[in-house]
């Protein structure tokens, strides 16, 4: 079966090896079947937006990619390394994969700068001065260098999320995962975070992003993946997905999203 080819629309264009391969991944919470034969291949520098109703398993899938959740069946290969119980593989992958959470998860007891330098110092073994220079570099890129000495509690939600993005970038990841990065934000702050993400996309980062921001998907995504009830229902370019949905479930979802906005 040529499903793999089906899955990678740009493979022929980019000629790059896949960054992430999910092959028939299954996961259960107790008796609940939350991921059902999920297969997805993401090429290097590809930007994929995952959408779907809540409880569709999209967050679970993205969290499986850096093993915050463990899958029970199938294979997940990230940057050529298969995710297993082996902790060494896990360490390598977590260095290469950055993650941004819905609830920011900044460390409240550390300054913004310390939030960003913690992992470079303790994981990448960088000298403190270099780590701080790197962190200031990325904080400048997300446009909040002046907040470096403050604590997360003193920042607005949008600023916190941009710090979270800078913090992940400080590890120089090859892949960035975004788990509903704008869902916990007030409407006026969503744009500043999306702008940061668009800039990142333009720089050629491999991105997997769970979001309902359809404008963002249109502008940035190479591919949109629609999930429902733990399975991938439909995927394609944003234009095709939004203008010409093939399945009733996607049509229903799109109508609900549009009504909601």
């Amino acid at each position: 079966m040529s499903q793999a080819v089906h899955n990678i629309p740009h493979m022929a264009d980019t000629q790059a090896p896949p960054a992430i391969v999910l092959d028939k991944v299954n996961k259960w919470y107790g008796a609940m079947h939350v991921l059902r034969d999920v297969s997805l291949t993401i090429a290097e520098k590809e930007r994929v937006v995952v959408c779907g109703p809540s409880g569709s398993g999209k967050s679970t899938m993205i969290r499986c990619i850096n093993r915050l959740e463990t899958h029970q069946e199938g294979h997940i290969i990230v940057d050529g390394t298969e995710l297993t119980d082996d902790t060494r593989a896990l360490d390598t992958i977590r260095r290469e994969v950055g993650m941004v959470f819905q609830s920011f998860n900044l460390f409240p007891h550390l300054t913004i700068l310390e939030n960003c330098t913690l992992a470079p110092i303790w994981v990448r073994k960088m000298p403190k001065a270099d780590a701080e220079e790197l962190a200031m570099n990325f904080l400048t890129r997300v446009k909040i260098p002046e907040q470096a000495k403050k604590y997360p509690g003193q920042l607005s939600g949008g600023q916190q999320q941009r710090v979270a993005i800078a913090r992940a970038l400080c590890m120089r990841p090859k892949i960035m995962l975004f788990d509903e990065p704008t869902s916990a934000l007030d409407p006026e702050m969503i744009k500043e975070v999306l702008d940061t993400m668009i800039q990142l996309a333009e720089d050629g980062m491999t991105m997997v992003c769970v979001t309902h921001e359809m404008g963002f998907a249109r502008q940035v995504a190479d591919r949109v993946v629609f999930m429902d009830r733990g399975e991938i229902v439909e995927s394609g370019t944003p234009l095709r997905m939004f203008e010409d949905p093939q399945t009733d479930r996607l049509k229903l979802f799109l109508s609900q999203i549009l009504r909601g906005h």
Binding site: D91, R94, G98, N105, H109, L118, V123, A168, M171
Partner: peptide
């Protein structure tokens, strides 16, 4: 200390011991 702190530390590549020592215990 929310589970999110453990996850954020882990996602940055810190080991369990380092997360405990640098992130969870101080909080």
């Amino acid at each position: 200390v929310s589970l999110g702190q453990w996850e954020a530390g882990g996602a940055l590549g810190l080991g369990r011991g380092a997360v405990l020592r640098r992130i969870v215990l101080p909080q």
